[in-house]
């Protein structure tokens, strides 16, 4: 047990700060800081402090899921901006949908969308969700998420990096 506490203490806090702006870390770290502050401000104003996201894999290869997972690691720790992932669409403000919607998931995606209370936003994550990507439209895939449900924002990338995901969510909130 002592080892465990020692490791926690020596690891310290790796979460990349949102304030004050650090002088040593350049580039994407700075970007995350600036963005984080902006996201937090908007969420506080528009969503009374927090937004709930339900992630729906509608045919993805799992690449996008890995990067969405990374948003919860201690570096990005997206919850501190008031963004958290929920287990049911009924608790969600936002649906984060990945994949070239496979036809076998089409009905499930529609039902998930219907189960999400209004007002709701849909973010299509990844190139496949944006336009069908490498898979396109076929007997097995409906292609872009917008072919199945209304989409409010698109985050492209194969897969989008955690930073791109943050930017995309910010873009959606700004609208």
């Amino acid at each position: 047990m002592l080892r465990l506490f020692k490791k926690i203490l020596t690891t310290g806090i790796v979460t990349e700060n949102i304030k004050p702006v650090s002088r040593t870390e350049q580039g994407r770290e700075d970007e995350l800081e600036r963005m984080g502050v902006e996201v937090k401000r908007l969420i506080d104003r528009k969503f009374a402090g927090s937004i709930a996201i339900r992630q729906v894999d509608a045919g993805s290869c799992n690449g996008c899921e890995l990067e969405i997972h990374a948003l919860n690691n201690p570096y990005y720790d997206i919850e501190r901006f008031g963004i958290h992932f929920v287990a049911s669409p009924r608790h969600a403000d936002v649906l984060l949908v990945t994949g070239p919607v496979s036809r076998h998931m089409q009905a499930a995606l529609l039902r998930t969308y219907q189960a999400t209370p209004d007002p709701k936003w849909v973010v299509a994550v990844g190139d496949c969700a944006a336009c069908g990507g490498e898979f396109g439209e076929s007997y097995a895939c409906c292609g872009a998420v917008s072919n199945v449900i209304p989409v409010d924002a698109v985050i492209s990338g194969c897969p989008p990096t955690p930073l791109a995901l943050m930017k995309g969510v910010l873009g959606m909130i700004k609208r």
Partner: peptide, 27 residues
Amino acid sequence: YVHKGVEKIAEGRNPEALARLAGRVSG
């Protein structure tokens, strides 16, 4: 549920395009 027709859409691709598709069989 995530059947994307990988085998079918592989047909007619050139080697580079197949490599890209194979890289997305499982991310």
